[in-house]
Design a protein around this nucleic acid. Structure first.
Length: 288
DNA sequence: AATTCCTGCAACCGCGAATGT
DNA sequence: CACATTCGCGGTTGCAGGAAT
């Protein structure tokens, strides 16, 4: 993108000059934010109407806040993402001072870095290979993620390896587990729409995200298949694959609320184990 | 000091929805 | 009702400047 480039109809493209900003600001302040094509003509700007609108809405509007996101703002973005998914304009509507474009840039920037660090292909994320978590390579991967994203200190390192990251909490238990602590009894899990037929507690490891944010459509609804090797998550029609990352980020509507967890025969001990180990993390971190 | 790499972010593009004629 | 125009959104690109080598 060159600051001096032009479109094929002679309109200017690229970076805005101070003079152009002043012209646009003066015009919009006087005549208001409408009919952007006439703004570009009448304000003496050799710019596309869309470009004028974008410049005003994202930079010149007096309510636009510039600069990097504070810690509080980062947390707010996270909250809004869990609420709206990738609907940037809706997020911006509840985020005074920040535009949809700014929020989108912030989010995509983080996501890009995260992916590059992990060195994962999207296809890899389609697979939640239960066995491989015990192997070593993938636990190294989650360790890296853990350190880089959240800086979580290891506890009981000889017995547990767990991590919280994009695809949720991954936990690989090794063979010499200590006895589980005693927790108050809870009623047996209820069977609901998913009708998982086996106890998920029999897994040695897996992605906790699949427990909390579970696609309503789990191909085949067959725990045996899930356990044996690969979990294929698909959309409502059962055709389009859903990556674990996209479970939350792109297919928010297809996800079950954590409150629907009762559809699984999930081991209470296993859940408690994870919660007590990492209780200072909010579940919302799972989508980060 | 020069070069390469990385990151943030401004801006463009295509598309669908809304509105006007 | 049909078509044209405008608007707004989300995805993507690529520049600029700082950091690392």
């Amino acid at each position: 993108m060159s600051s001096s480039s032009h479109t094929n109809n002679g309109l200017k493209k690229g970076q805005w000059s101070k003079e152009e900003d002043e012209l646009l600001k003066a015009y919009v302040t006087k005549y208001g934010e409408k009919n952007w094509n006439t703004v570009s003509k009448n304000a003496g700007l050799n710019r596309d109407g869309k470009s004028c609108r974008f410049r005003w809405c994202n930079h010149l509007h007096p309510k636009v806040k510039k600069g990097s996101f504070s810690k509080e703002e980062e947390e707010k973005v996270l909250q809004l993402y869990t609420k709206f998914g990738g609907l940037w304009s809706k997020m911006a509507a509840e985020f005074p001072g920040r535009t949809d474009n700014a929020i989108k840039n912030f989010w995509n920037g983080r996501k890009k870095r995260k992916r590059e660090r992990r060195g994962l292909q999207v296809d890899d994320e389609l697979n939640c290979n239960v066995e491989s978590s015990l192997g070593g390579s993938s636990s190294q991967q989650v360790d890296d993620l853990q350190e880089e994203e959240f800086n979580i200190p290891e506890k009981n390192e000889n017995n547990f390896r767990y991590s919280i990251g994009t695809s949720g909490i991954t936990m690989a238990m090794q063979s010499n587990l200590p006895p589980l602590p005693q927790y108050p009894q809870i009623p047996p899990p209820m069977k609901t729409q998913c009708q998982m037929s086996e106890s998920i507690s029999s897994y040695k490891s897996g992605s906790l995200e699949s427990m909390f944010y579970t696609p309503k459509n789990l191909e085949g609804s067959d725990v045996g298949r899930v356990r044996s090797s690969t979990t294929n998550l698909v959309d409502e029609k059962g055709k389009k694959p859903i990556s674990l990352e996209n479970d939350v980020e792109a297919n928010h509507d297809n996800l079950m609320h954590p409150a629907d967890l009762c559809c699984f025969h999930l081991s209470y001990h296993e859940l408690m184990n994870i919660f007590f180990a990492k209780c200072h993390f909010q579940i919302s971190l799972l989508v980060y």
